[in-house]
């Protein structure tokens, strides 16, 4: 397998990059206590594709996602969303960018407890002071099977339902890209399968770009492409992955 290791994902055919990291490094702490979470990472994530980022704990996969999603800033290097250089934006511009062009699904605590599912779904749009596109939102809600759950508060929803509401929110504003950080980490396998199926459908049917961090090979198998991280480096990638292949590679990586 080691023969397929390449430094970047740029070996694929040239397609539009929805997001890219160029020479991104991230260090935490100072002096002797400095820990490098990412070391000079180059990745390019193509639009309209479902990309999974995998790696063992501490590999820097979540850190990479945070950099790409504008939630954190790299110590050095550049991050682009489309043509926008995130690293040059101030906090406000970055916040507005997250609001208008990025969708988020976190592992847990995705929803505001005081708001109903419906309100949570349109939250970023409402924060922007805009009116949601009712037809579009309804189509997503229907796809996620949430129509009869819209008036419920998060505490009245199951974990799977909560994550599906989060997914609906992520897509509601038609973002350029959706980032999902271990979206199935807290779900049972049935709920996880449902959510992953939806994400895949969003890519295939709606042309949505989705980037997902996961440590679960089965989850990764829903993606079009898997990036493997270890020790802050991108060590390999895999296209059209299967769960077994990913698992094999991860065993190899972990060994």
């Amino acid at each position: 397998m080691s023969a397929t290791i390449s430094m970047t994902g740029s070996s694929t055919a040239p397609v539009t990059a929805a997001a890219r990291a160029e020479g991104v490094s991230k260090f935490y702490g100072t002096g002797d206590a400095t820990i490098a979470a990412l070391k000079d990472v180059y990745v390019s994530l193509e639009a309209g594709m479902f990309t999974a980022i995998m790696g063992p704990s501490g590999s820097g996969k979540s850190t990479l996602l945070h950099m790409l999603a504008g939630l954190d800033r790299p110590t050095s290097g550049e991050v682009f969303l489309g043509d926008t250089q995130l690293t040059s934006l101030n906090d406000k511009a970055l916040t507005l960018l997250r609001r208008d062009q990025i969708g988020f699904i976190f592992q847990s605590f995705n929803l505001l407890p005081t708001m109903s599912a419906a309100e949570n779904i349109v939250l970023p749009i409402r924060i922007a002071g805009r009116k949601p596109d009712e037809v579009w939102v309804k189509s997503i809600v229907d796809k996620l099977g949430l129509a009869d759950r819209l008036t419920h508060r998060p505490t009245e929803l199951s974990g799977g339902q909560q994550q599906r509401v989060a997914a609906a929110r992520a897509l509601a504003s038609r973002p350029q890209i959706v980032f999902a950080d271990e979206p199935t980490g807290a779900l049972d396998s049935a709920a996880g399968t449902e959510l992953l199926g939806f994400l895949r459908k969003a890519v295939k049917e709606l042309g949505q770009t989705v980037v997902m961090v996961t440590h679960d090979p089965t989850a990764a198998s829903y993606a079009d492409r898997v990036l493997f991280l270890a020790d802050g480096h991108v060590v390999d990638e895999m296209f059209e992955p299967t769960a077994d292949a990913v698992l094999d590679f991860m065993k190899h990586l972990g060994a």
């Binding site: 916040t95 507005l96 609001r99 976190f106």
Partner: peptide, 16 residues
């Protein structure tokens, strides 16, 4: 804290 973080993540500005 977590709610505030979530709101900031999904696009609420500091002023908001």
């Amino acid at each position: 804290t977590r709610e505030l973080g979530l709101l900031r993540a999904v696009g609420m500005t500091r002023n908001q």
